[in-house]
Design a protein around this nucleic acid. Structure first.
Length: 652
RNA sequence: GCCAUUGUAGCUCAGCUGGCCAGAGCGGCUGAUUUGUAAUCAGCGGGUCGGGGGUUCGAAUCCCUCCAAUGGCUCCA
């Protein structure tokens, strides 16, 4: 009998018979370990507990504690769901069913519409199959046998997947009871391991994500190793709903939609407008310090401008249709760049004028497909924190890096810690198609972007094939409270359009040259950024950003005169302050101010009138005692000017 | 755009297996109360039951259609 050496993570070596499984080894260490085991990692590769080991290996046993095990569990839960579907709807065809970070799904092709009732039915069936505790067995076939098997089962989607694999490839499938699914694995050893799960929702999804293909039905679910983890997850989902910017936007009176105005066209209410103005003030101050110049451009423009820019060629479906004005096509602008280019070329430029930085909170309109509108995060009218930087090749690296550092400056102010910078690169195979045919320029520019980022110590990931048609770009991804992913900021290089607009500057040598252009929007759009901030802070804004900063609560209307004096003291310093004049008791006034998330409450009654003070109650901190009007308003003024984050909203 | 779900008062929701004048709580308004750190009491308003069409003696309720929102797919700031 041949033996093999198995090295465990503590470097101890076990000599076992060839063909021993990872599960056997776990068992030999201890039964408790065996019961907690989900899979093993042999020489760094994940495999099933039952899979025989046929050579020397370093072995790590994956127990339910790890993220990897959780991933396997959810993948197995997806199989359990598919099996339940097949038992209830034998003619259903199954497509794919992967695990995501905290949930899994399975795409199926079935006549019946999957509704709430069916989800309940399926969940019941899943519980039943889990109780059967079926062994999950891996089988390996030659490609053609696998093809025959899934053809016989009428699993057209599986057949399609297999037939695209290489002839020589071995195909693995996992069986449990009568059910078999094409799959790489690994999986939990038996269905009994999948105990705590819930089906969450159903939705449509195109086969292979292509809108030309048939739409399948996707069922989402989640699975965990313990009831507690499952409940925690469901609770987190509930909590996230409370932070949803659409809900908070309504409650706090920030913005509204009206069907007579139109979908995706938000109305900024007075409270929301205050936030917009604050954000804009921050941007103007920051851009002013970085030597940007502000400009203004019209919303409406002749089609010829967008022919020149290439928007009509590349971007037409996202533009509102043309309107006929005196026989000429006009469009509402989807972007500000062409206008800024026109400003650049309005006066002659020398190399001494570069970098030439033009900034505008320009209003753009894009015809987004109705199904993709989403609160403030995806709208049809938006105001972009836009700027275009025209510079020489030599200046490019520094300018690009400065923009990236501007993002980080903003993120620091708002306490945004969870984000990802993505460097989108071109695909050389698509030159002349999706990308302008300038192979050397692409490589050169991409390299200098990399260098800029590396020199600035900025972490990023590279995404090939995602660049704009005119150059590489950096996108900053963030996640909303309800888990949706968004591109927030963007920083794009453009080496094409300046040429199309015939932009020139006179160089040191007296010759004409074309500048590079950097498009950048660190604060995204008002709409998306504020939508994101609402969720980020859960409506609990830092003082400087809060629509209502201070509310004065007179204990009774006997103290209204004094309240008015207090109000003036704060108002004079530019602090946003109101008096709650209603005939309510103080407890009710406090409650309402708390619900509106007003950061500072000033209670005034007999004591305060006598001593000329205010009783300060700060959100999340409670009663802070009496303070003089002048000292306290000065203190607040300072906090506002410095744009500090409060105790309650410094984490996230 | 596609698949599914939903749409009743300013907000949150009940009613919807067709049938008494369509309900509740909160908010609003009026009055009383003059209040000390998360809800004072009473009264009064308020709805083309998303729009249009149909079935029916009769429609918030059933059917069709349009609009909008929601969950996804695809795409993006």
């Amino acid at each position: 009998m041949k033996t093999i050496n198995i090295t465990l993570p503590d470097n101890s070596v076990k000599v076992v018979e060839m063909g021993t499984s990872g599960g056997d080894i776990a068992m030999s260490i201890g039964e408790g370990l065996y019961r907690a085991s989900i899979a093993v990692k042999a020489n760094g590769e994940m495999q099933d507990l039952h899979t025989p080991l046929n050579q020397d290996a370093t072995l790590e046993i994956i127990t339910s504690k790890s993220d990897e095990a959780h991933h396997i569990l959810m993948h197995s839960a997806a199989h359990l769901l598919a099996q339940s579907i097949k038992e209830i709807f034998p003619t259903a065809k199954i497509a794919i069913g992967p695990a995501l970070i905290d949930r899994f799904y399975y795409d199926i092709d079935v006549e019946e519409t999957i509704n709430e009732d069916i989800l309940v039915q399926l969940e019941k069936k899943m519980k039943e199959i889990s109780k059967r505790n079926l062994q999950v067995k891996r089988k390996v076939f030659p490609r053609n046998d696998a093809l025959d098997l899934f053809k016989k089962l009428n699993e057209d989607y599986k057949v399609e997947i297999i037939s695209e694999l290489d002839e020589s490839e071995e195909i693995s499938a996992y069986g449990q009871g009568d059910f078999i699914d094409l799959c790489r694995g690994p999986h939990v050893p038996s269905t009994g391991k999948i105990k705590f799960f819930k089906l969450l929702s159903s939705a449509g999804a195109y086969w292979r994500g292509d809108e030309k293909n048939k739409m399948l039905q996707r069922i989402y679910g989640t699975a965990w190793f313990s009831k507690e983890e499952l409940n925690n997850f469901l609770h987190t989902l509930e909590e996230a709903k409370k932070r949803d910017h659409r809900k908070l936007g309504k409650e706090l009176g920030l913005f509204a939609f009206d069907y007579e105005v139109g979908p995706g066209l938000p109305l900024w209410l007075p409270n929301g407008t205050i936030m917009v103005d604050e954000l804009e003030a921050l941007a103007k101050e920051t851009e002013d310090n970085a030597d940007y110049m502000r400009v203004r451009t019209p919303h409406l423009t002749k089609g010829i401008l967008y022919e020149r820019s290439g928007h009509l060629e590349h971007y037409k479906e996202s533009m509102y249709p043309a309107m006929d004005v005196d026989g000429i096509d006009y469009y509402v602008k989807p972007m500000n760049c062409p206008h800024h280019h026109k400003i650049f070329s309005a006066t002659p430029k020398s190399y001494r004028d570069l970098p030439y930085r033009l900034a505008e909170y320009g209003t753009c309109y894009r015809y987004e497909k109705s199904g993709q509108l989403f609160g403030l995060m995806r709208v049809r009218s938006m105001q972009m924190n836009d700027a275009h930087i025209y510079c020489t090749k030599k200046q490019f690296k520094e300018e690009f890096l400065n923009v990236c550092q501007m993002y980080l400056y903003y993120f620091e102010i708002f306490g945004i810690e969870k984000y990802q910078m993505r460097l989108s690169l071109h695909d050389p195979a698509d030159l002349g198609g999706k990308y302008v045919d300038e192979p050397e320029l692409w490589l050169e520019t991409e390299q200098s972007v990399r260098e800029a980022l590396n020199e600035g110590g900025i972490n990023y990931v590279e995404i090939p094939g995602e660049a704009a048609f005119y150059g590489p770009k950096i996108d900053v991804q963030v996640w909303s409270a309800i888990g949706r992913e968004f591109t927030l900021a963007t920083n794009q290089v453009d080496f094409v359009i300046p040429g199309k607009f015939n932009l020139k500057y006179v160089g040191e040598d007296g010759g004409e040259k074309t500048p590079l252009c950097i498009h950048r929007a660190p604060l995204s759009t008002h709409e998306r950024f504020i939508g994101f901030l609402i969720e980020h802070f859960g409506g609990d804004f830092p003082l400087w950003l809060a629509p209502q900063q201070v509310v004065i609560l007179p204990v009774s209307d006997k103290y209204l005169d004094y309240a008015l004096q207090v109000k003036n003291c704060f108002k004079e310093k530019g602090i946003r302050v109101k008096i709650d004049q209603r005939g309510e008791k103080i407890g009710a006034k406090i409650r309402d101010a708390e619900l509106m998330k007003v950061p500072i409450m000033l209670i005034v009654g007999e004591k305060e009138v006598e001593k000329k003070t205010v009783s300060v109650r700060r959100r999340h901190e409670g009663d802070l005692g009496a303070q003089g009007c002048d000292t306290f308003s000065d203190e607040l003024k300072l906090e506002i000017t410095e744009r500090k984050r409060g105790k309650s909203n410094s984490q996230n």
